Simulated assay, not measured.
Amino acid sequence: MTMSDRPTIALVGPGAIGTTVAAALHEAGRRPTICGRSAHERLTLEFDGGQIVVPGPVLTDPHGIRDKFDLVFVAVKSTQTASAAPWLSALCDARTVVCVLQNGVEQIDLFKPFASSGVVLPSVVWFPAQRESASSVWLRAAPRLTLPDVPAARVVASALRGTRCSVEVVDDFVSVAWRKLLQNAVAGLMVLTGRRAGMFSRSDITTLSLAYLRECLDVARAEGAKLGDDVPQQIVDGFHRSPPDLGTSILADREANRPLEWDCRNGVVQRRGRSHGIATPISDLLVPLLAAASDGPG
């Protein structure tokens, strides 16, 4: 049996995204080793029509790991990347595929220093899941991952085959990743207003969002993304169709007074824009405000 037939799986970071993936694997009879900062005897995924209870324990000491794994899902936020380093050292060797379930377009650059000589596989996560308690997550839509068309993607696709979390493999991953980043970037406006998706129904917020998204689109295209002129309107229309109470992970972090993923979701547009000589006047206003909301002082 080859690694892609039935890989050994570990998961680091059983938050909203990590719990969803762990539950999908457990439901299909593929129990992953779960690692995190806090010990839990079980994790619970709630969704319309039912729940999945994933038995623990959640391991908290990387020094207690004795085995290396074929596949490691890393679902920590970008602000917690360095904290995952001891886990990656314990779980990975040269054959390990490290699939990063994290926002942004810089996942390989962020994790390559910590992943030994294993393969770092970026992903795009397409599902709204929110933490309800320390060990409970509410999933609001069917989970889906997008991966680049590289050999390591077959390991992830095999691990998740037949689960409720679908996997799509695409040739033009850069375009998909940047499109998701545009969606995440404009969602950052929720932090600055303290409001949820219903705020996008305001005409002035729609106008601001479209202007910001067009700025982000210019940077995305300079980075090689092939995205049409209609993408900003598509993203705003998606917010218009969303439940008014739909939040986003960066808003949840602000409400809990946690550090924000402002750099990987918004700062990257400003940074990459400057590297290409592209003016980013809206980013130049939004990024310092998001950074201050995250890091203070005050």
Results as ranks from 00 to 15, higher is better:
30 R>K: 11
260 L>I: 15
64 G>K: 15
168 E>T: 15
266 N>Y: 06
83 S>G: 06
223 E>R: 11
110 L>M: 13
163 T>A: 00
9 I>Y: 03
256 A>Q: 12
213 L>Q: 03
213 L>H: 03
6 R>K: 10
49 G>Q: 13
226 K>Q: 12
248 T>P: 00
124 V>I: 15
42 R>L: 05
134 A>I: 06
93 D>E: 12
90 A>G: 03
253 D>S: 06
72 V>N: 07
266 N>S: 13
279 A>C: 08
96 T>P: 01
138 W>H: 09
32 P>M: 09
110 L>Q: 11
50 G>D: 07
236 V>M: 05
58 V>L: 10
146 T>C: 09
169 V>K: 05
113 P>E: 12
30 R>C: 04
277 G>E: 08
95 R>F: 03
41 E>V: 15
249 S>C: 07
228 G>I: 11
265 R>D: 01
108 I>V: 15
73 F>M: 12
212 Y>A: 01
154 R>F: 05
173 F>C: 09
200 F>W: 09
172 D>K: 06
127 F>L: 01
285 L>M: 13
114 F>I: 00
80 Q>C: 04
183 Q>L: 14
133 S>L: 02
16 A>L: 00
285 L>I: 15
256 A>R: 14
233 Q>S: 12
236 V>L: 14
105 V>Q: 08
267 G>R: 11
97 V>N: 04
3 M>C: 07
135 S>L: 02
18 G>V: 14
279 A>W: 02
174 V>T: 15
90 A>N: 01
292 A>M: 13
248 T>E: 07
65 I>Q: 12
